[in-house]
Design a protein around this nucleic acid. Structure first.
Lengths: 332, 332
DNA sequence: TTGTAGGCGTTATCAG
DNA sequence: CTGATAACGCCTACAA
């Protein structure tokens, strides 16, 4: 691999001059610039990003913590982040936290040791205090899909409460009253907020919250299955169930069908996130749109603006969810 | 951030000694080691990975090229790679190639400029010659889910031909004769091989390949939809369709149902990959298992062994697909 | 506009 | 077992 030194030799200029043309510095005459460019081409020179990082104290890398590398949700998020950052010549280092406190902390340590210029975190298990302490360190952080009041300018978040509200409201609008709810792990703020929205919708419609029609799942398909089983076993009547995400909804659908429910007539089911596969379930799943790709992009833009000083005029911190009406819910 | 120099000062030893304890070099007395460790702890010292990389000419990073960051397939693959590498203290830089030649090349250039120690590539659009040329450069490469004969020791691949065969064979076993096929883009070897397996199964069962019952899709849901539409429009009788992946199968299912088919009785559908959601479709999708997580792990192990000299005894280059029988196919 | 020289935080090669 | 000291490849004042 050619080094900047060899290029300077071939072009008959100094290291500094080569460095200048590499970095598009204005103060180089056309002539020298051409000479240097030619030498670079001839040697197939490419700057060593590592040496650049060390010298400039800027690694051009952004650490990203997600819960899982797999799954419809984080894929979209990573895609949004990567696209935006890559266009700016930055790269991402992605690491999973598996929604466990220790692993999330490990992951963050790991990213920090890599000297990332900034961190974009989808942290679910660590507490606010940890994040607040972290934000005081040198490496800037952005929180995605999480709201910490004192860090609000570093947060990109979705109005989950509203989403939960919209979901339940959609069911009420169809005449449902006995509405079951399968939550995600309440250690996660998303899960808590969506549940709060559900409760608000019930309240506004003078429907009492029935603890027997509540189940705490895990945001995975089995959570939906277990939840539905729980409701059926409890013998409480219910005509609809709202699931705190699409994956649980798909699990609930499967279990319902296996137990003789004719969907959607016997049971209305609504999800949350509008994952790529939601439209391909049967019946096509009514759900709440979670603009996670856009949120990822926005987190990346925030980094570009705050850390690299790039002009990014339109920074949006809060996103609103929307109802996506399909066939999985029906009139009661 | 504390540097190695400050640690050496505090511990009253030289830089070299600190470096030794950082790298677990044997030649340090217990006493000095303790002194140094204490100093490190006191200063909350963490080695600067970038400086280490520059000095050691080893970035401890592995570049990974995938087609898409999102989607059920690549998520699993990345998870397998990351898990294995992370346990070894390495990190991955992931970049998408979007199945386009230019973008794949860009992505590879990008990873190369980052001075990755090795590349794990799921390259679909670049041709064999490009890869062969690439493999002659300094950075070692591993090809995942792709077979290039002259690079076979660098390949981790699935027997796609066998997979295609198994799929069609499963349908034949149920008495189907008029079997339609929706392929992926034939520029991708996976797609070609699966199709070849399909044809072999037909041949072995003395069923003629009917071009009217063949459609080239795109590995996405719309491909399945378009394929099914094509078959229906062509007025050819068919009782089953094999799709070259699960996403197309889900698209085909949706379209079929929207056009009056009662699944699976009116039409048997089989997929490929056994993605996480396959079991949650309706009817649960019969498919061919693609052990992509394990293949990702294996690619990572190969890197660990070849590049970092870690002992990894069990290297498996070829994986066999298996039939996963569920409810989406039925007796004719 | 161009060149010189010091430094970024480590590793690695020698001596001792 | 320990300590100097020269790389690693590039950036960036500062000079010219």
């Amino acid at each position: 691999m050619a080094t900047i030194y060899q290029v300077s030799q071939l072009a008959g200029v100094s290291l500094a001059t080569v460095s200048r043309v590499v970095n598009n510095n204005k103060n180089v005459s056309e002539k020298t610039r051409d000479k240097v460019k030619q030498a670079m081409a001839q040697l197939d020179y490419r700057p060593n990003a590592i040496a650049q990082s060390l010298a400039s104290n800027c690694s051009n890398s952004i650490g990203v913590l997600v819960s899982e590398l797999s799954g419809p949700f984080f894929g979209e998020m990573m895609a949004g982040i990567e696209e935006e950052l890559r266009n700016a010549g930055k790269h991402v280092i992605i690491t999973p936290g598996h929604s466990e406190e220790d692993k999330e902390k490990d992951g963050i340590e790991f990213l920090l040791s890599r000297h990332c210029d900034a961190l974009i975190l989808h942290a679910e298990a660590v507490n606010d205090d940890y994040l607040i302490a972290l934000s005081k360190k040198k490496t800037p952080i952005i929180l995605i899909s999480r709201m910490v009041e004192s860090l609000s300018s570093h947060c990109i978040s979705l109005d989950n409460e509203l989403g939960g509200y919209l979901a339940t409201q959609a069911l009420v609008a169809k005449g449902h009253v006995d509405i079951a709810y399968i939550a995600g792990a309440l250690t996660k703020s998303d899960a808590k907020d969506r549940l709060a929205g559900h409760k608000r919708a019930l309240k506004e419609n003078n429907i009492a919250f029935n603890p027997c029609l509540y189940f705490q799942g895990d945001f995975k398909q089995t959570g939906g299955k277990n939840g539905l089983k729980h409701f059926i076993d409890s013998k409480q009547p219910f005509s609809a169930v709202v699931c705190a995400n699409d994956e649980m909804a798909s699990g609930a659908m499967k279990y319902a069908r296996e137990h003789g429910f004719n969907l959607p007539n016997d049971l209305s089911i609504i999800g949350f996130d509008n994952g790529i596969f939601a439209d391909y379930l049967f019946p096509p799943l009514t759900t709440i749109n979670n603009p996670i790709f856009a949120m990822g992009q926005m987190a990346a833009r925030l980094v570009l603006k705050n850390v690299y000083g790039k002009e990014k005029p339109l920074i949006q911190h809060f996103f609103k969810p929307e109802l996506i009406l399909r066939d999985s819910i029906t009139e009661r």
